[in-house]
Amino acid sequence: MMKFMILTYKRIRISAIAIVLVLALTMGSLSGCSQKSRTGIIVAGSTSVQPYAEIVAEEYMILHPDTEIDIQGGGSATGITAAQSGVADIGMSSRSLKDEEKGLWYVEIARDGLAVIVNPANPVQDLTLDQVRGIYAETITTWKEVGGSNSKIHVIAREEGSGTRSAFTDLVMGKTTEITPRAIVQDSNGAVRQLVADDPNAIGFISLGLVNDKVKALELGGIEATRENVENGSYKLSRPFLFVSLSEPTGQTKEFVDFILSADGQKILMNEGLIPSSKGAGK
């Protein structure tokens, strides 16, 4: 028995050495790979900005075949962290920077409206900002209280960490009220839109550019949710789409940022439903 055990231990030790060797070899070859890879621009962050950035990047890469732009999601928080740590050349954010993040270089590439959407079958056309806040704080629980049918409101929100959620919280809920924990949570603009399209008693919020004919964007205090009204400032729910970087970009990265801010770049974003940027670069 004893002899058997010793033998087994010996075998295990030899095998362990083998494993370490295999691991070391794999690591070696992996790091070899990354050294060889082309230098390009790494862009990461908000999944709200991502689809638009991808479209512009595609266009840019057609014009500059030598540049490789790698665009990844992860969310606004991830994008800002990645820019701070230098992991990404550009971080994308779909909310304004917090005070402690203001040291970063940033530029507003476009603005996006935030639409409060309901099912097209819902007779409600117009809510005030206070009513929307009341619905999301669950002080208003039936559609009847805001001029609709006598049924319970199904509140739909985005998940914690989402730029769209934090923009909605900043713009609608304010500092003192919170989105009710009983709200249904969906993890993308598309999922919220689909649910509202299916459920006549649902209310949700999505990027204005993603509103389609399956859902109805509500007027806020009598003001229609349109690109023009966001641009002229009468529709209050809008948020910046930011490019964030550790320091002012140079070289390839600067060229890409310049392209997205140029008339051509802005036109692409406008065609996709965004509102052109009014402001220039920040710090």
Binding site: T78, E160, G161
Partner: peptide, 11 residues
């Protein structure tokens, strides 16, 4: 599953 995409730090 729903929050990992956006989570960083303590989250």
């Amino acid at each position: 599953g729903i929050e990992m995409g956006y989570a960083s730090g303590e989250h």
